[in-house]
Amino acid sequence: MNILIVEDEASIRDRLLRLTRSILENRIQSLETANSLPEAESLLAANSFDVLLLDLNLNGEDGFELLKSLATRSFHTIVVSAYSQRAIEAFELGVIDFVAKPFDQERLAKSFNRILGSDTTRSHFAKFLAVRSHTRIELIPLDEIEYIQADGPCSLIVKTDGSQRPHDKMLKDLSQLLPPSFERVHKSFIANMKAISGLQNGANHKNNLSFHSGKQIPVSRSKAKELKTKIQ
């Protein structure tokens, strides 16, 4: 795991370093730190990271605008902040976890476990998926998404109006952010179950999930059984 810690207070930055090493041990490939946003952006541009630990109040600046931009990237973001009242807002933008200060090793470990997939319990989910659209950040409400398709190392969001938006995150990373109404129906597809119109049995035991727009996506056999029960 390649990790970047962005925190301007040395003692807290050291704490994050120490606890991260203690939690992840030999699962860490690289562990970098930055004490300012410009430094962080330089590191992000030059390196590839899997996880970003971010303080939202760097040098007195409000980090929420930055959060929107970071949410479009391929890595997961864990917010570490004293402003716990903005946690829900952060989740809605698509962070994997919000760790309130002060924190201990157990709490930080829970965040990493979510990323690693060993902890699937969640109470807060994204309400938007942030995508970069030319020079601006577009926040797509989840109810406008029909399905998400894998696209190499990235993903492709297909909206109910037929338009498409690319996303830097892989499908498995997106599925960790999305609510239960979005299900991984195929290794290459996540479907918004609120947008489906039905499940069709195709030839050669292939099943398709159809949407109100008329589009169809394939469903894995194991998932098809489960969905049949749910839909009926």
Binding site: S11, I12, D14, R15, R18, N57, A82, Y83, K101, P102
Partner: peptide, 15 residues
Amino acid sequence: QPHFVLNSLTSAIEW
């Protein structure tokens, strides 16, 4: 304010 207190407490825990 929470920012001052919580950051200070986080630092205190580390120390």
